[in-house]
């Protein structure tokens, strides 16, 4: 079913919102470099994948994210029941994420695809962080390398990043 209208221009919407709130214009990061590329060495049905989500998902029992440039992350066992997941974020409507965390952290769907043989396996751990971080430098220099190190340690073939 094709969409009838083009996607929302969130950049323009954010400019208008910031202007209405009296803030200076947001300075978007533009990554002009060519992204790193690793060819797929085998079919997805034989790959091991890790889920990484920026929707502010943590597991009950863990310390929740704070909302002032929290660049930490939460390690979540890939077998975790979705009913134990929680959402903490300041920049999107959490209603549906709290009702069904799969909308931003699709563990159930990934486990199902593994069961069906569409996806080879899940890595042992998924990773959640709260993506409302105003410093792209902190993300690039601290958070991203820390999660990448975990992914390498988990020996996954693929990382599925689910942003909000």
């Amino acid at each position: 079913m094709p969409n009838l209208r083009p996607p929302i221009d969130y950049l323009e919407a954010t400019r208008a919102l910031y202007d209405a709130l009296g803030h200076p214009p947001y300075r978007w990061v533009r990554n002009e470099d060519v992204p790193p590329w690793t060819p797929l060495a085998k079919p997805v049905s034989q790959c091991r994948l890790a889920l990484v989500g920026s929707g502010g998902i943590y597991r009950t029992g863990q310390v929740a994210f704070h909302h002032r440039d929290d660049i930490g992350f939460r390690v979540i066992d890939s077998a975790t029941p979705v009913g134990e997941l929680r959402a903490s974020h300041f920049a999107y409507d959490l209603t549906d994420a709290r009702r069904d965390p799969n909308v931003v952290f699709p563990l159930d769907g990934l486990r199902r695809l593994v069961g069906e043989g569409v996806l080879g396996a899940l890595g042992p751990r998924a990773y959640g962080f709260m993506g409302g971080i105003y410093s792209s430098r902190k993300v690039r220099d601290v958070l991203a390398p820390a999660i990448t190190e975990r992914l390498v340690g988990d020996q996954v073939d693929l990382a599925l990043l689910v942003p909000v």
Binding site: I8, D9, Y10, A13, T14, A16, L17, Y18, L21, H23, T60, G61, Q62, V63, A64, F65, H66, H67, R68, D70, R86, A87, S88, F90, A91, Y92, D93, L94, R98, G132
Partner: peptide
């Protein structure tokens, strides 16, 4: 487009729990 998103409200470094039971467990 205009009703949700980053409203640049006050933010601090205290954990923001979904509910108080989560806070107690953590």
């Amino acid at each position: 487009a205009t009703s949700v998103g980053d409203a640049r409200g006050a933010r601090d470094a205290a954990p923001q729990y979904q509910d108080e039971a989560d806070r107690a467990r953590a």
